[in-house]
């Protein structure tokens, strides 16, 4: 715990991050692909018709909830807090779906895989979606919606 940030989980965050990085490393060195969730999800559902082989995409996407379930069963209940209203989820979901496809990636593909590869495209994308997220939440706070 960091005194100034009572809610922070630096140790769990770092260990969880190592697991995420290991997962992406297995995808890269085992199958020669970037573990980008938005791309894999679009491929698994048939929304994208190029990318990873279909069975690879489906297996990866199915693994995500199974991994979360594994933590819930072994480590303990996973604490999640959702917005009270359904609207932020619907509007947010539409923007995330449209934006990640248009921008060719999300936090995993551009953030984890692209930044560690020092890809200029991913550095620009990550800088922009981070900045956009900070500004958006700043506006929500200023408007009294948070």
């Amino acid at each position: 715990m960091i005194a100034a940030f009572p809610n922070a989980m630096p140790v769990e965050g770092f260990i969880g991050g190592l697991l995420i990085g290991l997962a992406a490393a297995i995808m890269l060195l085992g199958l020669g692909r970037v573990a980008g969730v938005s791309g894999m999800a679009a491929r698994a559902t048939g929304i994208a018709d190029s990318g990873a082989p279909r069975n690879v995409a489906i297996a990866f996407v199915v693994g995500l909830p199974l991994g979360a379930l594994l933590i819930a069963q072994t480590v303990g209940a996973v604490n999640v807090n959702f917005p009270a209203s359904i609207w932020p989820l619907i509007i947010g979901g539409l923007l995330v779906g449209y934006g990640t496809r248009l921008g060719s990636g999300c936090t995993s593909g551009h953030g984890v895989c692209g930044l560690s590869r020092l890809s200029p495209r991913s550095m620009v994308a990550t800088g922009m979606f981070m900045a956009s997220g900070f500004v958006t939440v700043g506006i929500l706070r200023a408007g009294g919606w948070l």
């Binding site: 989980m9 769990e12 965050g13 770092f14 260990i15 969880g16 991050g17 190592l18 697991l19 995420i20 990085g21 290991l22 997962a23 992406a24 297995i26 995808m27 085992g30 199958l31 573990a35 969730v37 990873a52 069975n55 690879v56 995409a57 297996a59 990866f60 996407v61 199915v62 693994g63 995500l64 909830p65 199974l66 991994g67 979360a68 379930l69 594994l70 933590i71 819930a72 480590v75 996973v78 604490n79 995993s108």
Partner: peptide, 18 residues
């Protein structure tokens, strides 16, 4: 292999609070 990758990814997300 893809399932293992997804599984570790999901576990990392849940463990880290993300």
């Amino acid at each position: 292999i893809a399932l293992l990758s997804g599984l570790l990814f999901g576990a990392g997300l849940a463990y880290s609070g993300m």
